[in-house]
């Protein structure tokens, strides 16, 4: 038996909106730690890792570890039917082939339940080693989204370079080229507006903008984003989910042939 009650149901709606473009079907894993997911895109270039810790739920009952295969588009369709202020409860029976999403309006005067069929998915879990990154950039998530959107109108790839001068996003295309440099800026009024660059070694990596733009669908989840870079390693783009966990996107770099 599984029963997870999330008072801030809008978080789950936002999570689905942030990952459904990248991944079609995925297994949600439920354990005493929390509700999690790890899935790659169909080309095995990008990966999403989601964690919603059990402590973040108002009620969290998971009698035994469960893996539930869901089509994310269908799940998003159902969650769209929940109001932004609704409380969402996820329910499933052990060994069942359905999951139920229950939505309660804040005043308890409307209660809906939506039952969705589960599916069998061959999961391909990757072991992601803990890594020391050469550079970690923390910046406003809206700024990062803006940069990715702007650069994708010029080129297909972005070179992200971190030096002690700042972080540079560059692209080239048929019509020309563009460079956007963000300097460390910690003297802003609000901490979420700061750009903080934590660099051990200079790093420069090339990535497909198409994926970066897809990751920025998670912008509504967090005011800030952190971008962890190491030469010759996939980048990690992380959106923290307040008091609950995170959505992390991993993207393999483009490498010179």
């Amino acid at each position: 038996m599984l029963e997870l009650r999330l008072v801030q149901g809008s978080l789950l709606k936002k999570v689905l909106e942030s990952i459904k473009e990248l991944v079609t079907d995925a297994n949600f894993d439920c354990s005493s730690t929390g509700f999690s997911l790890q899935a790659m895109d169909s080309s095995h270039v990008a990966l999403v890792a989601l964690l919603l810790r059990s402590e973040g739920f108002e009620h969290y009952r998971c009698d035994r570890n469960m893996s539930m295969g869901m089509n994310l588009n269908n799940m998003a369709k159902m969650l769209k039917c929940a109001g932004n202020d609704d409380i969402i409860t996820i329910k499933a029976d052990d060994g069942g082939d359905t999951v139920t999403f229950m939505f309660e309006s804040p005043t308890q005067d409307k209660i809906s339940d939506f039952e969705m069929k589960l599916m069998d998915i061959d999961s391909e879990h990757l072991g992601i080693p803990e890594a020391e990154y050469h550079a970690i950039v923390k910046m406003p998530s809206s700024e990062f989204a803006r940069i990715c959107r702007d650069l994708s109108s010029i080129g297909d790839t972005v070179v992200i370079s971190v030096t002690k001068e700042g972080v540079k996003f560059s692209t080239k295309g048929d019509i020309g080229s563009a460079n956007i440099v963000c300097r460390q800026n910690t003297s802003v009024d609000k901490p979420e507006e700061a750009t903080v660059i934590d660099m051990n070694e200079p790093v420069s990596l090339t990535f497909a903008l198409r994926y970066m733009n897809s990751f920025t669908k998670a912008t509504p989840l967090s005011n800030t984003v952190s971008i962890s870079l190491s030469n010759e390693l996939p980048v990690v783009v992380e959106y923290k989910i307040a008091e609950m966990g995170y959505v992390r996107f991993y993207l393999a770099p483009k490498i010179e042939e």
Binding site: M40, S43, H44, V45, A46, L47, E124, H125, L126, G127, I128, P129, T157, T206, A208, L233, P234, Y250, A252, P253, K254, I255, E256, E257
Partner: peptide, 14 residues
């Protein structure tokens, strides 16, 4: 030209 690498080049299958 740059070639798109795959995640499997960096991470191992569990």
């Amino acid at each position: 030209a740059n070639k798109q690498s795959k995640l499997s080049a960096f991470f191992t299958m569990k």
